[in-house]
Simulated assay, not measured.
Amino acid sequence: MANDFETTIDFIKSQFKTDEFIPLHVPHFGGNEKKYLLETIDSTFVSSVGAFVDRFEVMMQDITTAKKGIAVVNGTAGLQVALRLAGVMSDDEVLTQGLTFVATANAIAYNNAHPVFLDVDIDTMGLSPIAVSNFLDENAEMRNNVCYNKKTNRKIAACMPMHTFGFPVHLDELLSVCDKWNITVVEDAAESLGSYYKGKHTGTLGKLGAFSFNGNKVVTSGGGGAIITNDEEIGTKAKYLTTTAKKPHPYEFYHDELGYNYRMPNLNAALACAQLEQLNSLIENKRTLATEYASFFASKGINFRTELENTKANYWLMCIELENKAERDLFLKQSNENNVMSRPIWQLMHRLPMYNHCQRDEQKNALFLEERIVNIPSSARM
């Protein structure tokens, strides 16, 4: 297998046409980024009020077809506020996947709620509707049309799937299970801008969705995020809460509930707008790379992860599934020593000290993937 890995490393280098270090994902600034940033500086509106913040929110509505888009400082803040708007309160529980980036769990904890870590599906690497259904059948009961965990006596207030690396979860099945138990779905769509499930953009099928525009995403604002929803009342409340819950007034400062200073600065929004203008071309470029990878890895007998039927993935971070942990570790070592960045998928949340007490299921599929999935360079080659 070592020789195969050498060939793989050479192939990846050939795709990026360099012997220099190849990162996992770098931003591409090939549009109006500098122009819009200079406009923002010239306007003096560089903080959380400005034309580009408004433009960004409209662009997110247009791209996702959501009725409301709300700019926030990062994806984690978006998730935190989205959960609050979904009705998650202190000491409630939120069902989510154990195989995820830590921000998913942190957003739950920031609301003083408790994550419950459930298994993922092998094909999507995201929250499994079967795992959710099995957990609820065994642990939940309805009290006055509200779902409670019989073992902890806490309300199960929401379910938050995460679309891993931009691959949509099985949303129809998950929504059906949650509807049966009257549980609100909030989509962690941080990694899935430009991904679709049965023709609908991720983030629009749950009550709310949240996206990240971190420096390593498909498009970036340096730091930034967005909440989307088709509930206009919730969208208005989201904008209000993220603007310190300040009542509009020409000069008085009055805040009538606990809010957050979570608005995206106009400087970041300027960068985001220029990036969003290039979203389609960036994704098409990445999909071309994914096609090249798929053909190469098929010839090597290595499973390169591709989108499922009835979905369109943005291929944010592309990944391969190796035979076992030993093969994974060998590939990680050889690729990184040869200037090709690769990384393993995340450690399961229950392995982290702040979450090792949380309720969870067997995590069979998550454990399988944790030992085998490796991300490889995925940048657009513009």
Rank of each mutant, 00 (worst) to 15 (best):
T220C: 14
V72H: 12
K180A: 09
T96M: 15
E371Y: 03
Q275E: 14
Y110V: 00
Y36P: 04
F304A: 06
T311G: 04
T44G: 01
E187A: 11
E292M: 10
F253G: 02
D231L: 04
A269N: 07
H114P: 01
G31N: 15
Y262A: 15
N303S: 09
N303L: 09
V146K: 08
N280C: 03
V146E: 11
A366C: 08
K198Y: 02
G69A: 12
K34N: 10
H170W: 00
A313N: 07
D10I: 08
K247R: 03
T7Y: 04
L330Y: 02
T236W: 05
T164R: 11
G301P: 06
L352N: 08
A274L: 07
E187L: 11
P115M: 06
D62W: 03
G199R: 11
M382P: 11
S176P: 00
L279T: 10
G224L: 07
G206M: 09
Y148D: 01
S281K: 14
P250F: 13
M264P: 09
L79W: 03
H201N: 12
R372L: 09
L95M: 07
V132F: 05
V94E: 03
K239V: 01
T40K: 02
S335L: 08
E257H: 01
S176Q: 14
K207D: 00
E191T: 11
S299H: 12
F29T: 05
I130N: 06
L330K: 13
T291V: 04
E370I: 07
V120K: 02
K150P: 01
T18H: 06
Y148I: 04
L99R: 15
G215C: 07
M89C: 08
F135E: 00
D179R: 02
Q15M: 13
A313D: 04
E327S: 15
A109K: 15
G87L: 03
D4S: 14
A313V: 03
I156K: 02
I108E: 04
N339K: 15
D121W: 00
K68N: 06
I183C: 03
E309H: 11
S299R: 13
V219Y: 08
I234K: 07
P250L: 12
L118D: 03
A109P: 00
L193Y: 13
V72G: 14
L308W: 00
T220E: 14
I22S: 12
G78D: 14
W181D: 02
I22M: 13
E57Y: 07
F5T: 03
L282M: 13
K67P: 02
K286G: 08
E232W: 00
T64Q: 06
